[in-house]
Simulated scan of single mutants.
Amino acid sequence: MSDSANLRPHGTTVVARVSAFGVVVPIRASDDLREPVLDAWRDALTDDEPTTDPVDADGLDVASVLHHLSPAVTTRAIDAMAGELVMLHAAALADPISGRTAVLVAASGTGKTTASVTLGETFAYLTDETAAITRDGVVMPYRKPLSIIDGSHVKKQIAPSALGLRSTELVGRLAALLVIERDPDHEGTPVVELLDTVDAIAAIAPQSSYLPSMDKPLHRLAELIHLVGGAHHVTYAESADLEPLLARLLAAAP
Rank of each mutant, 00 (worst) to 15 (best):
A102E: 05
G137A: 07
A90G: 00
G99F: 11
V154W: 12
E223V: 06
A222R: 03
V198A: 15
A44E: 09
Q157A: 06
T51E: 11
V18M: 08
H89D: 01
T52M: 15
A240K: 07
R42A: 12
D196C: 13
V117N: 09
R166I: 11
K216I: 03
Q157F: 06
T12E: 15
G111L: 09
A5C: 00
A20T: 14
L33F: 07
R8L: 15
T46H: 09
I225H: 00
T75Y: 04
K216C: 04
P184N: 13
M214G: 02
T12H: 11
G164K: 07
Y210K: 05
N6G: 05
T197K: 12
E49D: 15
A44P: 10
D183N: 04
A253H: 11
L221S: 01
K216F: 06
D32Q: 04
I180Y: 05
E121T: 14
A247C: 13
T13D: 11
R28F: 10
T130I: 08
G111C: 12
I158P: 05
P9L: 10
A90P: 01
L126H: 07
E49G: 15
S208V: 05
H219D: 09
T12L: 08
R173E: 01
D196E: 10
V171W: 02
T75K: 00
S161N: 01
D56Q: 08
G59F: 07
M140E: 09
V171Y: 02
L33W: 03
H232V: 02
S209H: 06
L45D: 07
H232K: 02
A251N: 07
D58R: 08
P184D: 14
T110W: 00
L33R: 04
S116H: 10
R28P: 11
L221R: 00
A80K: 05
V117E: 07
R166N: 13
V228C: 13
Q207R: 09
A253T: 13
L194N: 07
F123V: 08
S98R: 08
I149T: 10
L85R: 02
L221M: 02
R76M: 11
A106Q: 02
P54Q: 13
I180E: 12
T46N: 09
H233Y: 15
L88T: 07
D185W: 14
T101I: 00
S152V: 08
A252F: 00
E181C: 01
V37S: 06
I27S: 14
L60I: 11
E187F: 08
A91N: 06
L85C: 09
E129Q: 05
D39L: 11
A63N: 12
T52D: 15
L211M: 02
H232Q: 05
E238A: 15
D53H: 14
R182F: 02
L227N: 12
V191Q: 07
A57G: 08
T189H: 13
L246H: 01
S239M: 04
S4E: 12
V138G: 04
A247V: 12
T130E: 01
S2D: 05
A72C: 01
V55P: 01
Y210D: 14
L126T: 06
I204D: 05
E49C: 14
P160F: 00
T75G: 03
D53R: 15
L33V: 06
D47Q: 14
S161D: 00
A176Y: 09
R173M: 01
R143D: 00
S64T: 14
P54L: 10
A57S: 08
A107L: 03
G120R: 09
R100N: 00
